[in-house]
């Protein structure tokens, strides 16, 4: 079953959860062949019940020790713009659509999403353009995201600190 996994990390993003479960967006997802929707809603006030959407299989939870399994099972990940969630989704090698929360104080999160979008690693939109983006998106344009090299950091620090 083609699955969409939605994650908001440790934040709350009710607007996204509200939009994603709206009939408009659910129809757009169905039209693209997605049949299952898994929501990680974090600290948000909305925790949709499994039977609240009649047209799609819905699961929702707040937090898990690890969402790696949910990411692995997903065919599309929809995420807030947090670096951790973005990097985890890209690291899992899944197509990623980032929904930017334009209500956050000094919205620096957009910097990363925009840059990764410029480098063709992800698609991005806001809640108001979500339906449109899901209907028109072309996942084949996405470029694989190569992992960062923490070893370079470790080697530099070893030299700088004189670690043998």
């Amino acid at each position: 079953m083609k699955t969409v996994f939605v994650t908001v990390g440790t934040t709350s993003f009710d607007e996204l959860i509200e939009h994603i479960t709206s009939s408009e967006v659910v129809h757009a997802l169905k039209a693209r062949g997605y049949e299952r929707l898994v929501l990680q809603v974090g600290r948000g006030s909305l925790l949709p019940a499994a039977d609240s959407c009649t047209h799609i299989t819905l699961e929702a939870f707040r937090f898990k020790d690890s969402i790696a399994e949910d990411m692995k099972q997903a065919d599309l990940i929809i995420s807030h713009a947090g670096a951790g969630s973005c990097l985890e989704a890209l690291g899992a090698g899944k197509p990623l659509l980032v929904v930017v929360n334009d209500k956050l104080m000094n919205n620096h999160q957009m910097e990363l999403a925009r840059q990764l979008h410029l480098d063709s690693h992800l698609l991005y939109c806001t809640c108001s353009t979500l339906t449109e983006t899901l209907s028109n998106m072309d996942l084949s344009v996405l470029q694989p995201f190569l992992p960062g090299q923490p070893k370079n950091f470790a080697n530099f620090l070893d030299r700088a600190l004189g670690v043998q």
């Binding site: 990390g9 947090g82 670096a83 951790g84 969630s85 990097l87 985890e88 960062g148 923490p150 470790a154």
Partner: peptide, 10 residues
């Protein structure tokens, strides 16, 4: 959240 994930990678 993200800060912790990043620092653990390092």
């Amino acid at each position: 959240g993200g800060h912790t994930t990043e620092i653990l990678r390092l």
